[in-house]
């Protein structure tokens, strides 16, 4: 009995802290999203005007572009990462640690150092343009910077390690006996890959998709630094509402839409893996 109360008091500490700094602020955002905005002040009420505006002609495109960007870049990231993770997990022999560390070290560097250099690499007269010209792949000046492709390249570079880590962990755990069994039964290496490895790596694919798509939906820094700060994506639109227009109500509605988009994607991925994440959480907690 004494033990129970002690544990509940302990559990109340993180709960209270996170309630004040996470749940209550989110509640504020939800409430304010239904308010009516003046400059820097909000009259609370129940109005759907902010949502109408956030999904209206001006911002609907931004919302859809953000969704397409996050899903598309995440898929590209997974396609890029899968062979890398496969090489590390199943073909690196005694160099596994080195091969893994080489991918991990860039991930540990700060976001700014990994993003800002693309401003130089992709710029006109920059290193990439010189290399492409020297090889003869490019005649005209390189005009990638301050556009969507530059944002995609920068985002791929930032999120690739996360995808590789999530996939490697799962690919590494596939028992060699399963692969040997399929070979003994006469499967060619390619059919072993498609019928044994790929299905067994599904939890890793889902985790990697989750850990890339969700933060990409809210990505702010990379589009600002590489996309020419043209307000390409939702996070920039939100940031503008708060920092410049002082339209907190509209900004809050956009945040709520962003959270809904995140929720839908998480739900889809959890369903795709037949509740893998929930089962894992329960096992871990129990």
């Amino acid at each position: 009995m004494r033990r129970n109360t002690g544990d509940h008091v302990l559990a109340a500490v993180p709960l209270a802290w996170l309630a004040v700094l996470f749940l209550v602020p989110l509640g504020f955002t939800l409430v304010y999203s239904f308010g009516t905005s003046g400059f820097g002040s909000v009259t609370l009420g129940f109005s759907l005007d902010n949502y109408a505006q956030a999904l209206g002609p001006l911002y609907l495109q931004t919302f859809l572009r953000t969704l397409a960007f996050a899903v598309g870049t995440s898929i590209a990231c997974l396609l890029f990462a899968y062979p890398v993770a496969y090489a590390i997990a199943r073909r690196s022999g005694r160099f596994t640690v080195v091969a893994f560390a080489l991918i991990l070290v860039p991930y540990l560097a700060s976001l700014l150092i990994r993003v800002m250099s693309w401003q130089i690499l992709l710029a006109q007269g920059g290193p990439l343009e010189r290399i492409l010209r020297a090889v003869g792949l490019l005649r005209s000046p390189l005009t990638v910077l301050d556009s969507l492709p530059a944002v995609v390249i920068g985002t791929l570079a930032v999120y690739l390690p996360i995808a590789v880590i999530a996939l490697t962990v799962v690919l590494d755990r596939i028992p060699p006996e399963v692969v040997e069994a399929s070979q003994d039964l006469g499967a060619r290496p390619s059919s072993t890959f498609w019928t044994v490895i790929v299905p067994l790596s599904r939890p890793g694919v889902a985790t990697a998709a989750l850990l890339t798509t969700v933060p990409m939906l809210g990505e702010l820094v990379i589009p600002v630094l590489l996309g020419g700060n043209k307000g390409l994506f939702l996070a920039q639109a939100i940031s503008t509402q708060y920092a410049q227009s002082q339209n907190y109500a509209l900004g809050s509605a956009m945040v709520v839409l962003l959270v809904i988009a995140v929720g839908v994607i998480v739900a889809l991925l959890v369903r795709l893996t037949r509740g893998f994440d929930a089962a894992g959480a329960e096992r871990g907690a129990g």
Binding site: L26, T29, V262, A281
Partner: peptide
Amino acid sequence: RLLAGLTYILLIVPETVLGVSLLL
């Protein structure tokens, strides 16, 4: 389960959402 749910949500909520909500 409540604590686990909260911990998982925190891990995946975009930083923009956190920052903006706290500012508000």
